[in-house]
């Protein structure tokens, strides 16, 4: 087995993934993410971005291929090992905030810290600190249901960043937001990640968002392509053909 390059913190080789209903998900994707790098994975819906991120983060086991994290072979780890890896090293922000509605905002943000065994007081300090950095410190004692979508998404990002993960997986974190909020949330996320040297793998279908990253990898139909721009739709050709058949 070939060892991964030294400067890459996360590294995948020839990933294949087939869903349980035999839908092909990934078709031989290889990539490496450097330490502290912000890598955007671009591509239209259904191109396998989420599947790739889930394979990289160990939520899914690839059908074929290898995933390495700092000399740890993620693809051969057992479920418990991957769970520990996710808890200790990785963080995940999805398109849905996924907050626990019974807990208030700071408790939500402090939950991963408390799950790692940190004391309540220290966890709270750190969570509130992160919430303030993401401009949601003023609502720290409110319930997540009382916030608007952008605020909730920020809380989710604070929750992901608070434990200082090595790698943050952000799967379309701004998909449900309006454009103004979208840019703001994304910039905050990037700034926080850069200042804390957190590696980010960002899946996004939005080219503007991808422009904020260090590097962009394009996926199309589960394959890595150099450019995901599809050729423009052929003018009136299709319509003429249709009218002919009538």
């Amino acid at each position: 087995m070939e060892a991964p390059p030294d400067n890459d913190v996360l590294w995948a080789r020839a990933l294949h993934f087939t869903h349980r209903d035999r839908t092909p998900g990934l078709n031989g994707v290889s990539l490496g993410v450097g330490d502290g790098e912000i890598l955007a994975v671009g591509g239209p819906r259904g191109s396998g971005k989420t599947t790739l991120l889930r394979c990289l983060s160990g939520t899914l086991t690839p059908t074929k291929g290898e995933v390495w994290f700092n000399n740890t072979p993620v693809h051969t780890l057992g479920p418990l090992g991957r769970e520990r890896l996710r808890r200790e090293r990785f963080a995940w922000v999805g398109p849905e905030p996924g907050l626990v509605a019974e807990l208030n905002v700071w408790e939500n943000a402090a939950l991963p810290l408390m799950l790692r065994g940190m004391g309540r007081r220290r966890a709270k300090e750190r969570a509130v600190d992160w919430l303030e950095r993401l401009d949601v410190g003023s609502v720290a004692r409110r319930n997540p249901l009382e916030l608007d979508q952008a605020q909730r998404q920020r809380v989710a990002i604070a929750r992901a960043l608070a434990p200082s993960p090595t790698v943050l997986f952000a799967d379309e974190p701004t998909a449900p937001l309006h454009r103004a909020d979208r840019v703001h949330v994304l910039r905050t996320l990037m700034a926080a990640a850069r200042s804390h040297d957190i590696t980010v793998v960002l899946a996004t279908g939005d080219l503007e968002a991808a422009a904020l990253a260090d590097r962009v990898v394009h996926l199309l139909d589960g394959r890595r392509v150099s450019n995901a721009q599809l050729p423009p739709a052929a003018g009136t050709e299709g319509r003429a053909a249709c009218s002919l058949s009538v």
Partner: peptide, 16 residues
């Protein structure tokens, strides 16, 4: 079920 999913995403161990 969705809360459980959110907790598992955060990395809450099943034992917790």
């Amino acid at each position: 079920a969705d809360t459980m999913l959110a907790l598992l995403r955060v990395g809450a161990p099943a034992t917790t």
